[in-house]
Design a protein around this nucleic acid. Structure first.
Lengths: 228, 228
DNA sequence: TTTCACCATGTTACATACAACTACGCATAA
DNA sequence: TTATGCGTAGTTGTATGTAACATGGTGAAA
């Protein structure tokens, strides 16, 4: 008789992870914009727990560079410095290239279906482009991309760095032409789907790199075009 | 008048970091071998603090993959699986190459002096090669190498992965010819010093990659030569 | 003998009380 | 007006008590 299986993943750990993802999402979608002050007491009250699990999650977020905590002062969402951003993007581009070389994971039928569905959703978004919806799809793209990374440490690094840059677009591009951005993103995802269908994993890495590169390029072009 | 500068790095944070480095060192030098059970109460008693800061540090170590905590069961040092190790090494090699390409930091006179001193120390070690001393020098090498990495995210990734593999040599190679290992390490560091003196940072990345590669190679050669 | 339920013990997760620390307002004096 | 010192409120860091959980042993029943 099998044991009742004590949930290989403990309940406590799942709740902690859910909290972590929730707060990370709030930061990434600018529900908590940079410099927002997060109170341990308020968060604890909102989620119906004590400060202990909140503090654990805030520690993880601080290790990710998403919040900064100072004794006696408070915990606030970190600001975005464009200088460091360029370095992160440069590194992300090189990591993207590695996806195709280091234990690439060719997609199965289910994966390809998910990719096609994502492309369809993005095309459908073209009618009424919303920034937050764009961000959501960008996060989905990231999730599907991670599944193609067979090398665990590489996957972890890519994931970590993605969330360090995920909120930049929403924050620094408040008034750009989101319709065009959505169109570009749709074409890029389409290119990725084609390359995946061919099973050309090396090409997948290059396409991924290109997506990141053009993202950085447009980020700085728009930035310099409209300096505040 | 300048403010008294309340130690930009708070006292609490420094103690926490010191604790983290201490436990990480104990794991890396096999003072805590894999599968060792760490008790929060014992650690708290040893360092004269309560369980809270200990738990915080153990969380960081778990994020690094160095310990594993299960509710109600305990916290133990993670085991080493050679399969995952090969993937980590593969990734580390690619990251090493990037050191020369992504914001390389050419060494100053002080840096070069430190490198030469390290080489001298390693050569001096040749008379009575001790495994733990070897590990110490390997850690020093890592520290000097980090100073040459100008790209912060890359530096962080290299640092994280180093400590995921630092203990492998001591653990899986209990009875190899350490004198020869020290000799090889000395030659490798010498090569690195030469390349640094030339200011050839691209070469530095390649030499670094080679050091990691040969390390992996010898690891598996010895492993297969003496299977238990 | 084997199997299974249960309990005792020790561990981590969580909650809560207290200490350390910061920032800000306000009074005060130059 | 401006600078300065201090007190107070509010925050994070730490200590400690309580709950949830896992593990091993014991003993009874099949």
């Amino acid at each position: 008789m099998n044991r009742p299986i004590p949930n290989r993943r403990s309940r406590a750990r799942e709740r902690s992870d859910a909290l972590y993802r929730e707060l990370r999402a709030r930061i990434s979608t600018l529900e908590y914009p940079p410099l927002t002050v997060l109170s341990e007491n308020l968060l604890a009250a909102e989620f119906g727990v004590s400060r202990s699990p909140i503090r654990q999650v805030l520690n993880r977020l601080e290790a990710d560079g998403l919040v900064e905590t100072r004794h006696g002062a408070g915990t606030m969402v970190t600001d975005i410095d464009l200088a460091g951003l360029e370095q992160i993007y440069g590194f992300r581009m090189r990591l993207a290239e590695l996806v195709g070389d280091l234990d690439p994971a060719p997609p199965g039928p289910t994966d390809l279906a998910a990719w096609r569905a994502l492309k369809a959703d993005i095309v459908a978004l073209h009618d009424r482009p919303e920034p937050v919806a764009y961000a959501r799809f960008n996060m989905q793209f990231h999730g599907l991309m991670l599944d193609r990374v067979g090398n665990p440490p590489l996957r972890e690094a890519i994931d970590r760095l993605f969330f360090q840059t995920a909120r930049v677009w929403l924050h620094n591009m408040p008034d750009i032409d989101w319709a065009e951005e959505v169109a570009i993103f749709g074409r890029e995802v389409g290119m990725m789907v084609q390359t995946l269908e061919l099973g050309d994993m090396h090409g997948v890495g290059l396409v991924y790199r290109n997506i990141i590169a053009s993202s950085l390029y447009r980020l700085f072009v728009y930035r310099h075009a409209a300096p505040d």
